[in-house]
């Protein structure tokens, strides 16, 4: 009887240990955020002989900083005119002062300065943003390859999938 009691007590002690371990498990759980090229999905399409529409689709719960968005065209000789980006949501930052952020979609019409008919170009978009769960990503570069139209024919945009990001 005593031996059985001892075993029982040991079992209870064991259960307490198990309960403690299980209780500790949530501490090991981590947030599961999207990679930046999924959180800030970049695409671009040819609108006409010298216009490219660039777009960020920002996943819910994520935001981009307006002043951290930059576009570059390859080859550089094609030249790119980037208009003033749309107004963002103004946020007072204790350290940086007034900052603007985007949520949802951001669309920008880019002008190719010296387009050649049928020319292949790459639009590289750099962006930097954060997630509401409390993490921020370093600047990420996503690239889309496009063919400028031959004459007045506008080909479908290709290469809508984000290319190598800064991380890969």
């Amino acid at each position: 009887m005593r031996a059985a009691e001892r075993r029982g007590r040991r079992a209870v002690t064991g259960l307490v240990v198990v309960a403690a371990l299980v209780a500790g498990l949530p501490a090991l759980a981590q947030v599961n955020p999207l990679p930046p090229d999924k959180a800030f999905r970049f695409s671009a399409r040819v609108v006409d002989a010298q216009t490219v529409e660039a777009r960020f689709i920002i996943a819910e719960g994520y935001y981009l900083y307006r002043d951290k968005i930059h576009f570059v065209i390859e080859p550089a000789t094609a030249g790119l005119t980037v208009p003033r980006l749309p107004e963002g949501k103004i946020k007072e930052d204790q350290f940086f002062g007034r900052v603007e952020t985007y949520r949802g979609d951001v669309v920008v019409q880019l002008s190719v300065k010296d387009p050649k008919p049928g020319q292949q170009i790459v639009i590289a978009a750099e962006s930097q943003g954060c997630a509401d769960i409390g993490i921020c990503y370093p600047p990420t570069v996503q690239k889309v390859t496009l063919a400028l139209p031959v004459g007045s024919v506008v080909p479908d945009a290709r290469g809508d999938s984000p290319k190598k990001s800064w991380f890969n």
Binding site: A4, R10, A11, G14, V18, L21
Partner: peptide, 19 residues
């Protein structure tokens, strides 16, 4: 006691070992 011996104890020991 039999329940403790046959079921709870092995399970607890196993779980502790797993932990």
């Amino acid at each position: 006691n039999a329940f403790l011996r046959k079921i709870v104890l092995p399970v607890a020991v196993g779980a502790v070992a797993l932990g």
